[in-house]
Amino acid sequence: MMHTFLLPLLAKWGVPEELRRPLQWAILIALAVLAFFAVKALYDANVVEDYENERAVESIEARDTAAEQRATDAIANAETEKELIDAIEQAPEGGELSPAARALACQRLRNAGVVSAACGSDGGN
């Protein structure tokens, strides 16, 4: 074992015989404590790495979900915009849009950044 290695080494270094055994055990205990902390540091590093990897995966999944939601929202917004433009450009059954309804719809389109031919170029239509 290691202690058989330590006793002659301590003797070679000139350690008095009555201190060799206690010093040997102190060295062995210190080495055991150092080994424990080294293993714990490796374990902690592994735990942190696992956590960061898990967090990265969750982040990727969240970004994918957000991208899908943005695409769904863009499609829904485009459909709503098309319906609004169609409602302005086509008269409802039985007649034209009232001037107030047309002005409101046109203002909503302008607020959304859409220019429709049905709204004309003047701000009053």
Rank of each mutant, 00 (worst) to 15 (best):
D64I: 11
P92V: 14
T72Q: 10
I27E: 01
A26L: 10
N125W: 08
G120F: 06
H3I: 15
E54L: 09
A71C: 09
D44S: 12
A100P: 09
Q107N: 11
I75L: 14
G123S: 14
K82W: 15
R55V: 15
M1R: 07
A26F: 03
I29F: 10
V48L: 05
D44I: 04
E79M: 12
L104Q: 06
E58D: 14
T65R: 06
C119S: 11
A105E: 02
L42M: 06
N46I: 06
D73Y: 02
E54A: 09
L34H: 04
I85F: 11
I29G: 10
I29Q: 10
G113D: 12
T65P: 06
E93Q: 06
C119W: 07
P92C: 11
S98R: 03
A74P: 00
A74Q: 01
V115P: 04
A35P: 08
L84A: 14
V33C: 11
E79Q: 09
S98E: 06
L7S: 00
A103G: 10
A105C: 06
V33K: 04
Q24H: 07
E18P: 14
L104T: 03
A66P: 08
R20Y: 00
A105F: 02
R102G: 11
E17M: 08
N46A: 08
A103K: 11
E96H: 04
I88C: 12
T80C: 05
I60L: 13
E52R: 08
A67L: 15
E89G: 15
I88W: 04
A74T: 01
D64N: 15
L10I: 00
E83M: 14
D73S: 09
L19D: 06
D44Y: 03
M1G: 14
